[in-house]
Every structure is written in C-alpha cells, then in structure tokens.
C-alpha cells in the first residue's frame, strides 16, 4: 500500500527530462494556470474563513446537533462532478438564481467567480470541521475565568478563544487551501476551461496530459510541492499543540 501511495509521486518527477521540465516551467501556459489557481484559491480561502468561522461557531453552540454537522460535511464527501452539477442548477443560466443574477449583469459560469464558488463549495467543510473542533476544544474554565475577570464579548474572542483555537484554525485553513488548489471536477463542469480565466493548474494538467507531458508534469510538481508545504504547515501546527 505504501508503495502505491509513494512511488507514483517519485515517478512523476522522473518521467520527463530535467531540460524539458525546466523549459516547461517558463511556458506562458503554465504561468497563466499558476496565476489563475493562486488568485482563485486564495480568494476562496478568504471566503471560507470569513464565512466558515461563524458557521463553525454555530456548530460549536450545539455539538449534539448531528444534522448540522451532516449538512456542513456533505459537500466534502460529494463527488466533485456532482458538486459542479449542483452549482449549475443554482447559478447556471437556467438555474434557480441564474436568470435573476443575469438581469443585474452577473453571469457566473465560465468566470473566475465560478472557479472560486466551486473551490469554496468543496473546501469550506474541511475548514469548518477543523475550526469547530478547535473552538470546542477551548477549555471552559479559561473562558469562565476571563468572564470573571470582566472580559467583554469582543475581548473574550479576540484574546482568549481565537488564540487558543488558532492551531486548529490554521490547520483547517491549510487543508481547505490544499483542497481548493487541486479542485478539478466541479470547476470543469461549472467554470469551463479558459486559459487565463478559468483554467486552473488541475484543468491545465488534464488538458496537457495527453499532449505535452513535460508541461503537465511541471504543473503537477508545482501542485505536489504546494500540497507538501501545506501538509507541513498542518504537521507543524499539530506538533505545536502537543
């Protein structure tokens, strides 16, 4: 099993010659894909944190409520293609909100916004789950002590709860970013594949894999590297909480 997990990753880096890879690293196509991916997934991460944290707090309020967790987790385990179709049925031109949105000039499919929506949809549960676990893990005695000492609601969150939950929040954010960076299925269906607009690294790899392998491999290595960095962030955060 370990073999199956590790060897393809090593194989990836040995498939093309270094010279080819080096050249591919400087191709316009790769740069476009990197820029699209970086922009969309960082904005997506921002949305996930801004929108996901209150949701995580809401989940923490009533940890017994299983259906809340269920609803929040659902997008994470949904096959990405299903997520893409689901987004189309809402935001598509003929979807529930599509016609309304297009009257105010918002046509979401085929735009970077569609990529971001797809990423938020699949990545948010990872953050929310981790964040709500972290918030739940904050010791009630500490919270009570702060309240006894006269901390305001804002101070309680700003100086007590958030700092204590920070490792979990960071780990959740890293996992969500990793998921957003690699998003493929929902993006392909909902956002299309336009170089410089909606063609993320994952989509560009898919298009190039059957055509120009060095480019695809160079792109794969970039994604692999960023996944490793994010994993290290999670590990480091994990270790610091022990």
């Amino acid at each position: 099993m370990l073999f199956l997990l590790v060897v393809p990753l090593i194989g990836l880096s040995s498939r093309s010659t270094l010279a080819d890879l080096w050249q591919a690293l400087w191709s316009h196509e790769l740069h476009q894909a990197v820029i699209v991916t970086a922009n969309t997934s960082i904005i997506a991460l921002g949305c996930v944190i801004v929108g996901g944290t209150p949701l995580a707090v809401w989940l923490t309020r009533n940890p017994q409520s299983r259906w809340r967790t269920f609803l929040v987790d659902l997008p994470a385990v949904l096959p990405p293609a299903v997520a893409g179709l689901a987004l189309l049925t809402i935001f598509g031109r003929t979807g529930w909100l599509g016609p309304t949105l297009s009257t105010v000039g918002w046509n979401i499919p085929f735009t970077p916004l569609a990529v971001i929506l797809a990423q938020v949809f699949v990545a948010a549960p990872l953050y929310i789950r981790s964040a709500s676990a972290a918030l739940q893990g904050v010791d009630h005695d500490v919270i009570n002590a702060a309240l006894v000492d006269g901390a305001s609601r804002y101070e309680l969150w700003r100086f007590v709860i958030v700092p204590l939950a920070m490792p979990g929040l960071q780990a959740g954010a890293a996992m969500a970013l990793a998921r957003a960076l690699g998003e493929f299925g929902a993006t392909a269906i909902f956002a299309g594949s336009m170089p410089g607009q909606t063609r993320t690294l994952a989509l560009a790899i898919y298009i190039n894999a059957d055509y120009d392998s060095a480019t695809a491999i160079a792109m794969s290595l970039i994604l692999l590297l960023s996944a490793m960095v994010l994993l290290l962030v999670v590990r480091r955060v994990d270790a610091s909480t022990r």
Partner: peptide, 11 residues
C-alpha cells in the same frame, strides 16, 4: 468570444 476550451467534443 470563446468562454471555454473543453477537453472533448461532448463537453
């Protein structure tokens, strides 16, 4: 005017 370049004709 192209908004997407798909990976196959069915798409």
């Amino acid at each position: 005017n192209v908004v997407s370049l798909e990976t196959n004709v069915r798409a």
